[in-house]
Design a protein around this nucleic acid. Structure first.
Length: 481
RNA sequence: CGGGGUGUGGCGCAGACGGGAAGCGCGCGGCGUUUGGGACGCCGAGGUCGAAGGUUCAAAUCCUUUCACCCCGACCA
């Protein structure tokens, strides 16, 4: 018998690692802090990639690729940027056995090298806007790592756009934030809060950073995507200029935005339960697993024609199906195995079902036998399972929403803030008018950080829970990964 | 970088204090019985005990050095 998943309430961190291992998503690589992504985990990432790419194309973006190595002097051209990234750079100093004239940084992000190229590509306002995305790996020499959430090397997409005006660039920044939120909610079934980062938390070199924040199963926050308005900071550093209609030289306004393999971590932690993963059907590599049940050759011969009928019907409806015909495992083992991997719907087909020309369906968003349906006629199995997948997709989102609602509390004074954080955790929604030092203080004293400032202050002004100043600004504080 | 801890078959661990034939569970291979919620029996393969040096008749165990990794903190998608 395989190791069971550790009950998560007792040790969330261990639970997370167990799920990853047992669901065959990743394993440790020989390189510290890096990870090997197994095929199943990678297929999940491909689902994320497709969902995002589709949306990028629909908003007029094109994919391109830029170099892995960045000359150090590029990074040094934007003061905040180099200061922010210097501590976590991996640098190549030897090439072909010889000391390099100039060290090359392994990209921690590509604003600089893309900025360098953009300065050559952009001459006129007719070249704008320039809307490009790159799928790539990046390296950040983190002190502490954790599979999917913070690895030294990770996969991501980074969009880099250049615009004629601040208005257009800001509009793009927020548009892509909306794209991320749409993906998170509709594909990953993770409800997210859109907000602006405080100056303390924003991207190195940005004017403003925006974020989608998600709540994990232990009440902690996870930044699941970011979108930055870079103003003319990088344009000035890299001479990204254009001639406008009046033949005057102007600096471009640029943006960048990214989502990484951390999204996989978000999916695991937002939806997973004590049986393992629960994957949203939109992204699940396998949407339906068929488990045939038989005792002997005779029964097997009866069962398999029906298995094939069902498989064909489901595939005909564009459903991603897998038939688990392993001879060496019992049905019970297979049920648990696929539940651990988070497959949204399971179809069981045995002699009893053949007799009735019907199948048993089980949905992963409901626990154990609660999610089982008996006697689903084979005649309309594709339609039924299609509906079921949609229900699981909705079910996961609704459960995550309910959980977040339960664990979000509005507080108005610091004492209650500390108390709630200590006893219940979760998101704390507050009026906020503090500065960076106030943020430091809250973090020192409570370990909670300012996750974001809500984009559209939903209501009237109130008093800052910490400083007592009147403000319209509403912020979310939480412990975060 | 500070504070803890661990290195023993593929994975998880015991053995170490008090030196005396390398063990257990899972997994893996074979055969048989099983199979509708993590099956069982029998047989079997697999380890220079992280590395180097030392003490000893004898070292996984004691001593010295060293390397690696993990956890907690500061940093971060």
């Amino acid at each position: 018998m395989a190791d069971r998943i550790t009950p998560r309430k007792e040790d969330y961190s261990q639970w997370y690692l167990d799920v990853i291992r047992e669901a065959e998503l990743a394993e440790n690589s020989p390189v510290r802090g890096s990870m090997v992504i197994r095929p199943y985990g990678y297929e999940l990432w491909e689902g994320v990639r497709n969902g995002l790419d589709r949306r990028f194309k629909a908003t007029g973006h094109r994919n391109a690729y830029f170099p892995l190595f960045i000359p150090m002097r590029f990074l040094e051209r934007e003061a905040d940027h180099v200061e922010g990234f210097a501590p976590e750079l991996a640098v190549v100093t030897i090439g072909g056995g010889k000391e390099l004239e100039e060290p090359l940084a392994v990209r921690p992000t590509s604003e600089t090298i893309i900025g360098h190229m953009y300065s050559r590509w952009i001459q006129s306002y007719r070249d704008l806007p320039l809307l490009i995305n790159q799928w790539a790996n990046v390296v950040r020499w983190e002190m502490r790592t954790r599979p999917f959430l913070r690895t030294m090397e990770f996969l991501w997409q980074e969009g880099h756009t250049a615009h004629a005006t601040a208005e257009e660039a800001i509009e793009e920044t927020l548009r892509m934030l909306d794209v991320y939120a749409d993906f998170a909610i509709n594909d990953a079934a993770i409800p997210v809060i859109k907000g602006r980062k405080s100056d303390r938390e924003k991207f190195a070199g940005a004017v403003d950073s925006y974020t989608i924040e998600a709540m994990m199963g232990n009440g902690w926050a996870l930044q699941a995507g970011t979108s930055h308005y870079l103003g003319t900071n990088f344009a000035r550093a890299f001479d990204i200029t254009y001639l406008d209609e009046d033949n005057e030289l102007q600096y471009c306004h640029t943006t960048s935005w990214g989502v990484s393999t951390r999204m996989i971590g978000a999916i695991i932690m937002a939806h997973g339960d004590d049986q393992g993963l629960r994957l949203p059907p939109q992204l699940a590599p396998i949407q339906v697993v068929i488990v045939p049940i038989w005792r002997d050759a005779e029964e097997k011969a009866e069962v398999f024609p029906m298995v094939e009928r069902v498989r064909t019907a489901l595939e005909g409806a564009e459903i991603r199906v897998h038939v688990d015909d392993r001879e060496d495992q019992t049905p019970g083992y297979k049920f648990n195995d696929w539940e651990m991997r988070g497959v949204p719907v399971r179809v069981e087909i045995g002699p009893r079902d053949v007799e009735k020309d019907a199948v048993v369906c089980a949905r992963r968003d409901k626990p154990g036998r609660e999610g089982k349906e008996f006697g689903v006629p084979v005649a309309n199995v594709a339609e039924h399972v299609g509906d079921l997948l949609q229900q699981v997709q909705d079910g996961l989102l609704h459960q995550a929403e309910a959980f977040r609602k339960e664990n979000t509390r509005h507080v108005t004074d610091y004492e209650t803030f500390k108390e709630v954080l200590e006893e219940e955790g979760g998101f704390l929604r507050v009026h906020w008018a503090g500065d960076e030092e106030d943020e430091d203080r809250v973090q020192d004293e409570t370990k909670a950080t300012l996750r974001c400032i809500l984009l559209d202050p939903p209501e009237d002004e109130g008093r800052c829970f910490l400083t007592g100043k009147r403000t319209e600004q509403v912020a979310i504080f939480a412990r975060a990964y």
